[in-house]
């Protein structure tokens, strides 16, 4: 089977400091990969390099495109990469304010990706926006409200709807549940899990919350100081950690 995303020895340094170094990974269709590690371990650098937000220094990121098969994303032209970024890819930011247009209504936020790929029929755009708001459990009556009138959890769900409306195949998530209280977090995780399973999405989820990866991820990658120190099935890594740092990480989780 062709991997959906094939990353080969990716590296990014900020001057003399290492962002991430020599990261290789393969993501297969329908799979969810979790990346965990403490703050400053290079998780977000890695994710931003993969999603094309940051230019990496070394390595290749090969994506299995719909039209032309596997292609190196880093050598694509800017219009192609932008097109990919709004059709087959999605990026869910930790802070919904980064991923939403706060001065535009919820419907407009969801419709933006559709209009960016050429939808020019108001009625159809609105129908799709309504449908997606329902899927992320936002009442239809709120379609013309601005995201600034939404609660944090609703904003995050709106951001997810806005990203998934074009039916992407690969979703990057950067701490999707960060900053939300536990009960809202649980509902959001449930929602994401349902959507990922139903749509057959592949996803890369970056988080420092081990409970999140336990619920969402099939496989797990542990990072420290820019390097990958352990990979494996999620349950295997969490239940039987091999690397000393992973052992420390797993044992640091607070028990209720």
């Amino acid at each position: 089977m062709t991997p959906l995303l094939d990353v080969q020895s990716l590296g990014k340094s900020y001057g003399g400091r290492i962002g991430c170094a020599d990261v290789s990974l393969r993501l297969y269709p329908g799979e969810v990969l979790g990346i965990v590690g403490e703050s400053g371990s290079g998780k977000s650098t890695l994710l931003n390099c993969l999603a094309g937000h940051l230019p990496p220094d070394t390595g290749r990121v090969i994506f299995d495109t719909r039209a032309e098969g596997p292609r190196d994303v880093l050598t694509m032209s800017e219009p192609e990469r932008r097109m990919l970024g709004r059709t087959d890819w999605a990026f869910v930011h930790q802070n919904p304010r980064d991923g939403l247009r706060m001065r535009i209504s919820a419907g407009g936020n969801v419709g933006e990706r559709l209009m960016a790929v050429g939808a020019r029929h108001y009625g159809e755009i609105r129908a799709q926006a309504t449908d997606w708001l329902a899927r992320v459990e936002i009442a239809e009556a709120r379609i013309d409200d601005r995201p600034s009138a939404f609660s944090g959890g609703m904003q995050q769900r709106l951001q997810i709807a806005r990203n998934l409306v074009t039916g992407p195949r690969l979703v990057f998530m950067d701490e999707p549940t960060g900053g939300l209280d536990v009960s809202v977090q649980a509902r959001l995780l449930d929602l994401i899990r349902g959507l990922v399973r139903r749509m057959g999405l592949s996803a890369i989820v970056v988080t420092h919350d081990l409970a999140v990866v336990r619920l969402l991820a099939d496989r797990l990658m542990v990072m420290k100081d820019g390097h990958v120190i352990e990979t494996g099935l999620t349950d295997q890594v969490l239940d039987d950690p091999q690397a000393p740092y992973t052992q420390l990480l797993v044992s640091s989780v607070l028990q209720v």
């Binding site: 800017e78 219009p79 535009i104 209504s105 407009g108 933006e112 209009m115």
Partner: peptide
């Protein structure tokens, strides 16, 4: 950059907002 790449979806978002409101 948007002009260079003919990336004009946003312009329609404005018209969408007009109709919605």
């Amino acid at each position: 950059k948007m002009h260079a790449l003919q990336d004009y979806g946003l312009m329609h978002v404005k018209l969408y907002e007009d109709i919605a409101r």
